[in-house]
Design a binder for these strands. Structure first.
Length: 241
DNA sequence: CTCATTTGACCGCC
DNA sequence: GGCGGTCAAATGAG
């Protein structure tokens, strides 16, 4: 896809996300927590806007948006086809609480594994959709605490839910489609549920109390080889198949 | 008793 | 052979 078209698509999706955030702010004004979080989320998306605009102006005619985004070439090959969503979540001590009833980000997950990752301070937890057995839902997610900022957690989603659950988060996800590939480049903040709370509280980093969470678009920077510079982001991200 | 989580073992890929 | 991802038996909570 031609770079300007990619940039336009990205901006269009971001515009939609921004409008959804405005709507969220209007509808949830009675909740102090939501009022506190919404401006931050909006600010993060605004930063993404600046990034996207930068891409659209900086990306030369011989450099696609994806090369400027530094997606590795192998992610564009048919053999690497996948749906990936990267989501950074920062826990906060905002009072009020946002915990759901066992759903967390709106879906029900079952933890099926936890693994110590080489070079990482904190373990990675593996979750799959609870409706895998009944609906064959292939959705999975991985949750790992950031080494640099323990209050930041990287949630990586694999696959889409084929179960019947619907929620606003899916509708507000900003996706950029290119041909047969679909890359989710951001997602509106969900809340943590009891399962994540339990996982995080049992890991080496102890919370004084879990009351809320905020998430943000990842302010990524990349080097010329297409590798993500870990020092430039506040949550480590790996491209996964 | 049922169901979700934990955790060591196993498997496949690089 | 090392590592990440998954399996499955054991364990615990309700």
């Amino acid at each position: 896809m031609e770079s300007n078209a990619c940039a336009a698509a990205l901006l269009a999706e971001l515009s939609q996300a921004k409008e959804l955030l405005k709507e969220l702010e209007l509808n949830l004004h009675c909740l102090d927590l939501c009022k506190a979080l919404t401006p931050r989320i909006a600010s993060s998306i605004h930063n993404s806007f600046l990034m996207a605009e930068s891409f659209s102006t900086k990306a030369g005619h011989d450099q696609s948006l994806f090369s400027s985004l530094a997606l590795r070439p192998r992610t564009l090959t048919p053999r690497r086809r996948h749906v990936l969503r990267i989501h950074a979540v920062r826990l906060s001590s905002v009072s009020g609480g946002v915990k759901g009833q066992g759903e967390g980000d709106g879906f029900t997950w079952r933890k099926y594994g936890q693994k110590e990752i080489l070079g990482a301070k904190y373990p990675r937890a593996y979750f799959r959709c609870a409706h895998r057995a009944s609906h064959g839902c292939p959705a999975k997610k991985q949750v790992q605490r950031s080494d640099d900022d323990p209050s930041v957690h990287v949630v990586t989603y694999h696959g889409d839910h084929t179960c019947l659950e619907q929620h606003d988060q899916e509708q507000s996800a900003a996706a950029l489609k290119v041909g047969e590939e679909e890359y989710f480049v951001g997602q509106i903040a969900p809340s943590f549920g009891p399962m994540e709370e339990q996982f995080f509280s049992s890991s080496p980093y102890q919370f004084g109390g879990f009351h809320g969470a905020e998430s943000s678009w990842l302010p990524m920077e990349f080097d010329r080889d297409g590798e993500i510079d870990p020092a430039s982001i506040w949550a480590g991200v790996e491209w996964m198949s």
